[in-house]
Design a protein around this nucleic acid. Sequence first.
RNA 1: UGCCCGAUAGUAUAAUGGUAGUACGUCAGAUUCUGGAUCUGAAUGUCGAGGUUCGAGCCCUUGUCGGGCAACCA
Length: 558
Amino acid sequence: MAEIKREEEKSLNFIEEIVEEDLRSGKHKSILTRFPPEPNGYLHIGHAKSICLNFGLASKYGGETNLRFDDTNPVTEETEYVESIKEDIKWLGFSWARELYASDYFEQLYQLAVQLIKMGLAYVDDSSSEEIAAQKGTPTEPGKRNQFADRSIEENLLLFQEMKEGRYKDGEKVLRAKVDMASPNMQMRDPLIYRIKHAHHHRTGDKWCIYPMYDFAHGQSDSIEHITHSICTLEFVSHRPLYEWFIEQLGIYPSKQYEFARLNLNYTVMSKRKLLQLVNEGYVTGWDDPRMPSISGLRRRGYTPESIRFFTEKIGVQKRDNLIDLSLLEFCIREHLNRIADRKMVVFDPLKIVLTNHNGEVEMLQSENNPEDPEGGFREIPFSSELYIEQEDFMEHPPKKFFRLAPGQKVRLKSAYIIQCDEVVKDQQGKVTELRCSYLPESRSGGDQSGMKVQGTLHWVSVAHAVTAEVRLYDRLFRVEDPSNEDGNFKEYINPDSLQVIKQVYAEPGLREAVGGKPYQFMRKGYFCLDRDSSGDNMIFNRTVTLKDAWAKVQNKG
RNA sequence: UGCCCGAUAGUAUAAUGGUAGUACGUCAGAUUCUGGAUCUGAAUGUCGAGGUUCGAGCCCUUGUCGGGCAACCA
């Protein structure tokens, strides 16, 4: 009932409205979308928005989505990227109807170009790129056509054929569409549609030495596949008239292009070029560095596909530029992990506690794996007379509202007993090295007979049973919200503290059984996942996200 | 100062001529064997000026601001 109501109240985004109208009017019986990555880099969370949109739309309206690699530039594209892109899409939870490549259409595209030449709508230009740029004019001055535009159809046909045969060097000639050099839309000023590149293509090898440009590949590929709704980002708005011009002139299937605003997230960058720089220049360890906004980085960081899909739902789809708060992404992952992550107790910065009234016998205590999941079960944790708690959970001179341990003060040890701090042991420098405490045997969790009420509950581990691990604490990659929009180079704004490594933390023994791909909540610390750098008994955990910390806020206010 | 796109709380996103709502964040409180989670409450918004209309966030005019377009990239 609640589910249904929510369904009704959920409003449509502008693309869904278009699709519903197209379906209602009978313009389309079903829809076909496509996700068209260029295999020249890894996917990032901005792509996830597009993926969720394209695949989500198709699945919502009973259509299909093609995965089509836009591989028209052999110089930058590699098979390695194809594989990572496929893996990321699958991981996000989507399956494509067909795996396709723009390069599958090179022959058809060539024929379409020939057709254009025959119609007198394309010509071979011998000018250099500088000359072409100069002749193009500026946004306020119209461009001028050069003498090559006057070549005969026969000559153009021959020259284009010769380009294809490899008779010319890179840059010697290009094929241009003959549109309108005076158009106020720069995209229409006789755009280049084919260029010569004697380069090895990751799929077609050395078969071709001429390659179509984006504008003469993308729309045509859409059309060949009968894509109904071709959804792209805003920077292609000005290309839409050209997209439509080609379709109209060639008389091919009329796919329609729609544009939405790309995702921007604060405290990071979202361009492949910039991300590649971070990787190449060693600011991060690779595309899957957990600080990267790449899908592979987020995955390694411990984000779940569900959380990313949930996030893309929450941010919506619109045409206005945006800068989304990282806190929303963090909310989405906490929301999911809180429900599914097993709890573990892990002490990062140990302070030893000796229970003076304890006989030293080891007792196994039970603790819920996940209080949010009634079927999550319990685990056993050893308790004995020597324990570690966090340094920061003790203060010799506590401020008001410090609900933790202090001389004479009581706290609950999670799933164990209430303890009281009786004595503080210090070294010669006056540093606290140990606490001597007493515990209330009748206060055991689950059967508390003590009648005591304490404010704070701490996580702890038994010294003798603790297992060690390394933790990597990640923070935002940049110190400023919008690094690309600051003065100077974006790299000047990298957060120097985006990674803090703690080589040795102390965990309850059960953490030994941790497996990769499973989330854990280190109680009161955050959500963590086992990193692939782990080996044998050297376990390494990545912090996915912290827990919300109300105490930190109180402290910060002084 | 060419053409195009856009402008609703701090950040996003609804309201499709008829009560400006939701989420995140923020603040306050309740509750809690995680200062987590949960629950309750609060503050904060239609870029400006005209116009059409009984009525405008929405339509029109105009201004302002932001973004895109002059790659043999996509």
